[in-house]
Design a protein around this nucleic acid. Sequence first.
DNA 1: ACATTAAGTGATT
DNA 2: AATCACTTAATGT
Length: 210
Amino acid sequence: MLQELQENYGYLLEDPLLEEIDKIGLVKQITEGQQLIEIGEYIKFMPLLISGAIKIIREDEKGDELVLYFLERGDTCAMTLTCCLGDTKSEIRAIAETDTKLIMIPVQKMSEWMNTYKTWQHFILQSYQSRMKEMLEAIDTIAFLKMDERIFKYLRDKAMVHQNEEIHTTHQQIAYDLHTSRVVVSRLLKKLENDKKIILHRNSIKILDL
DNA sequence: ACATTAAGTGATT
DNA sequence: AATCACTTAATGT
């Protein structure tokens, strides 16, 4: 595990800190589709991604959901950062997009290290900044992009985190993730296929224009 | 062969 | 862009 830490975080964090993470952190394997964090839950651990990807979803009172962004290797969840400091509940849901390996760190440690390790402090602030940026990107996407562009971006993101231009999902699932109807997804995907940007199959989509 | 689920389409708002 | 109503295609039993 120490070796994996060095590979993925070595360039960010100092050695003594990595050793401490190695000592304290719990390794967790999560299979695709499994839920990590539910809305309203208190967060007790901070996840550090080693491999795989996690989908971050926002949901309203009616149960309508919307995908905000994906977390990948080397990322951590910004929600935990705010939660730990303010002792508040999670505003988001996190679901494993692929099989994922991560290290769980108790939240007290995370604030403790803020004082003792400079690289940690840097890492936290850095993550916070990049999450904030992604959040703004998500807002832009929803507010300014048309549905067809949103779908294409979604497909690209998904291909990215899976490292595979072949996406396995249904039109219905995409509709849920983007908070629209299946019919609209089908129509727009058909258009993208006519534009030679994708190829449609049952339960899978191949992206040509990466 | 039949039932179930995914995807395609026209018409309407 | 959403909804309805209906068709067609793919897949499981």
